Amino acid sequence: MAPNIDNEETVVVDEVLDLGKLAKEKGSYMVYPDVKYPPLQPFEHKDPGKLADPKKASLFDNASKIYDLSPHVGTVIEGLQLSQLSEQQKNDLALLAAERGVVFFKKQDLNPYQAIELGRHYGPLHLHNSTGHPPGLPEIISIYHDETNPAVRNANAFRSASDGIHTDISYEHNPAALSILKIDLLPLGPGGNPVGGDTIWWSGYAAYDRLSAPMQKFVEGLSAVHTGEYHKLLAQKHGRPIRREFPPDTVHPVVRTHPVTGWKALFVQPGFTKSIVGLSKHESDAVLKFLYNHVAGGYDFSVRFKWEEGSVGVWDNRCTFHCAIFDYFDTGRRHGFRVTPQGEKPFYDPNSKSKKQAEEEARNANKQ
């Protein structure tokens, strides 16, 4: 449902608006309009990944190079422009992201308008109710931090980086399906080379597979409460308007089934998960702390991506966690922009399989 943005600040912009250049020249350009969005309505999601070619030939046959960054998560595609993908390539990308968690594209010409168009292929775009965005483009979330903002630097100075692990907007009834992020400005070190500002992703599939069988059985029967309280308090702290009331706390399964792959993925994270339904606070805190540490310590099922200006990450929030690394506040500024299509309400199918189980069965079938 489109928001009411009649009173929102608007500007006339060029269709090749360069937000990276704007951030470099003007710094923080974002607006926080005091307007009201209507509540989001639940919807039934039709995932384009279900229309994909299992071989993903439209991508593999046309890219100049495709390679995995780690065994469980992260694939790089070279030689394709996201701004020029065909319908079939967009569908195949949805499947690849569902399988590999996050897909990276380098040297992209994608502008904000093209990002919005691409994102809408994967679901209704989430209009964030408290973060900043470019004037007139509420579909875009601007990612911007620099060395001149002591409030942000101080807020993160004594905070564990793992506290920032999350999946985007998991507190919504229909959380994020994919997220599409372009980084176009990086902090520079003393030698003038980009340094810092990496992002880490973890595989939710492998996080589930790495649990013991008794623990898998235990967590599969649980549901967790997700809350947007962090974003709400952040907006209030900085005196920024909340454009749509945050939804009541939502309940999602601790282990969810991916609608495209059919694989089980762990789906709790310190960013927005509040508690586990049916457990006492002591029990809930203990279980969540274990699961958070399990993910944060998952060096064997994570990938750390070193951004280049013009790189784009396309990740599936239903089977990954991610965390930005704030190690550059004394170095320089970092900027990017993101669109976030929403997906289905998370569900758990007791007949679904783990990624490890599905792959083992496929290998055995091929031997026969």
Rank of each mutant, 00 (worst) to 15 (best):
N7L: 14
D14A: 12
K26H: 10
G27T: 13
Y29N: 09
M30F: 02
L40C: 01
K50E: 00
K55T: 13
Y67M: 04
H72W: 13
L80T: 01
Q81C: 06
L93I: 11
V102C: 11
V102P: 03
D109V: 03
E117S: 05
E117N: 05
L118Y: 01
G123L: 02
P124D: 10
H128G: 00
P134M: 11
I143L: 15
A157R: 11
F158W: 13
R159N: 10
D163Y: 12
D168S: 08
E172L: 14
N174E: 08
N174P: 06
P175E: 13
L178M: 15
S179K: 10
S179Y: 10
P190I: 13
P194G: 10
Y205I: 09
M215K: 14
F218Q: 12
K232S: 14
L234G: 04
Q236F: 06
R244K: 03
E245P: 00
E245S: 15
F246A: 07
T250F: 01
T257C: 11
A265M: 02
Q269V: 00
S275W: 06
Y292G: 02
G298T: 06
D300C: 04
D300G: 06
V303I: 08
R304F: 01
E308I: 02
E309H: 08
G310W: 07
S311M: 14
V314Y: 06
W315S: 08
T320G: 09
D327F: 01
P350T: 03
S352G: 09
K353F: 01
K353I: 03
A358P: 08
